[in-house]
Design a protein around this nucleic acid. Sequence first.
DNA 1: AGCACGCCGACT
DNA 2: GTCGGCGTGCTC
Length: 752
Amino acid sequence: MAKSELWNVAVPTPLNRLFVYRIPAELGEPVQGGRVLVPFGPRRVTGYLIDAAGDGENRSFKIKKALALLDEVPMLPSELLKFLMEAASYYIHPVGEVLRTALPPGIDFKERGKELVGPKIKNRVYTVARPKAGEAGQALDQLLKKAPKRASVLQWIIDAGEISLAELKARHPGAGAQIKRLADDGLISVFERERDVDPFVGPPVERDLPPELNPEQTAAVHAIEKGIEKSGYTGFLLHGITGSGKTEVYLRAIARAASLQRGSLVLVPEISLTPQLVRRYRARFGDALAVLHSGLSDRERFDQWRLLRSGRVRVAIGVRSAIFSPVENLGIIAVDEEHDSSFKQERGFRYNARDLALLRAARAGAVAVLGSATPSLESHHNAEIGKLKKLVLQTRATDQPLPEVSIIDLKRHQSGPGGQSVVTQPLYAAISETLAREEQVILFLNRRGFAPALLCAGCGELFKCDSCAVSLTLHSRPSGLCCHYCGARRPVPERCAKCSSDELKPVGAGTQKAEALLGSLFPGARIARLDRDSASGGKSEAVLEKLRTREIDILVGTQMVTKGHDFPFVTLVGVLNADVGLHMPDFRASERTFQLLTQVAGRAGRSARGGTAMIQTYNADHPAVDLARTHDYMAFAKAESAFREELGYPPFGRLAALRLSSKSAGKVEAAARDLFVSLKNIRHKTGAKDITMLGPVPAPLSLVQGRYRWRILLRSPRQDLIRKLLEPALSQIESPPSGVRITIDIDPVSML
DNA sequence: AGCACGCCGACT
DNA sequence: GTCGGCGTGCTC
């Protein structure tokens, strides 16, 4: 019997199952991982061919015919397809949506109204002419006498070896007829060719010579290279303090992989993917590098994707979605700053690219390297139990010492110069001295806007978002009240809606207030601010460049100032309020605070003369603050692990969040009650001791963007148990209680 | 998620 | 009289 005509197709829909279609022979040969246009309910969608479905079974539905096969060469090579299907299962997310997120946007058919619109982006093709080996040369002499014009066209084609028709016609006006004749006579061949991406992105970068490695780097590189050579999975945790030369370790390992004809992926946080970093990779790998960042247009993204898919380029550097790059025969996947939260995708298909890096490396038989100065507690734990091999870089590649960090206790320094409470006297003095030495200052305050809240002094009413139930942040320039959850904006009210008092008081301080205040405290200084509001549209690069070229004396900003490259003249870093993130309703709050404080303090440590950091805090004794002061990561990891265990938050294993959402609070509560009763029953039945229910945290019910949400968090090191617990929820996802939407996230970062 | 079908309020 | 509000149900 002929090959099965029935195929399982993944369709981009929240339904977590495959759909069976008939692929009529006249459509061509279906390939696994290829796209297929199928009728789906009342519309037509692009699906993905998974595998052949068994013939002849009794089915309760009628099988529809596919409309067209869209790929001869599968979009997803088999390793990538298998990895994505496993990722879908790991994150309990519909395969079709996972596959769609893994592919570059703009290549699918879209149905608009009744009309089917082709892909926005296609392979660029052009037509070329090429001389036929023997015939062309022989015919040329005769043609010269007989048909000089045709001969000269042929001469051009022979000289060029291959030339596009467009160019030929430009040189020989009206050459069309001659080309046709030459082709008819069999002297040349005319065919379509895929246009290569111009790989020369930006000015050419001069190749560098690999610098010498220090002994620690050498040991790390050797270990990773051995892992690549033995071909099979090894996971490494590269724990290297800031400035210890982790990037050079990746570069060497990638070069080794390339020498073995194996591909490489480097994932970096959004904010680290700067032109300087790309330049560093280009200096080593030239044009054999694809770059995938969020600033690319769909066209550019597709071009980079295709360079990788075709195998012409085997090394990719990019942000989280680069984990889906179609690189075959992977040798190494490196994740730099692995603790960074930008590796988490929190919309649609929720994933953590760092975790997927481990999964993909394991399945592809590649090496994974997670690098960080402050590894996530998960990775630290994995290193402790031997799942990751630990490589340590304790010495700085350059001889600069780590900055000295001092703590300023806000309990004892309630108000500073001018009576304000943002910059204390000791920090003020340090800034003055630094400016007097003509050096630079970075000030970190992890809170955008002018003031985090606006309060009515008449009745105590707090201005809150209508649809999110959180306090509105006061912004200046442009002024307004702004919800930092849903982004809603409204003008600053003149008076309180409740008591009509016009005495409205901004509470607390954000970066805008700090910036204004610094202007009055240091009138001679050049002050700039860097946060999400000031850095819209890629302006952050320009600001950081100004800092580098010393056109800025004081830079104040949110966590955007904690990253970026070296600023040799920044000798003072001040943390205006270390407690901002400490009391967030998130069990990772302390970990994040430690990471941010360590990072920002490290900003002061790249100068030849060493730098200092000052941390203003009410929580001087908190481990996240105290241990950041001594740069003692290991002590922090130990303290934090113990603390979480004490709280009943087992720090490791999978975290699952069940979200119920509806416009009606009553409906969510009712659905939650049903679900949680059965969850508890299942927990009881499984008798599992290693499952914890963490939530709901902080409140069972929260209002976000006009919808009520209920969240419950489960944690277990065992995937099977989590799955079992979630079973009733899974079955309800496809037929939820009316008006309620149920979703499952695995390991979310935000616990709102 | 989309999209259609279906059943009640304020409109040219 | 209908346009359209969003509740409900379905997708091989």
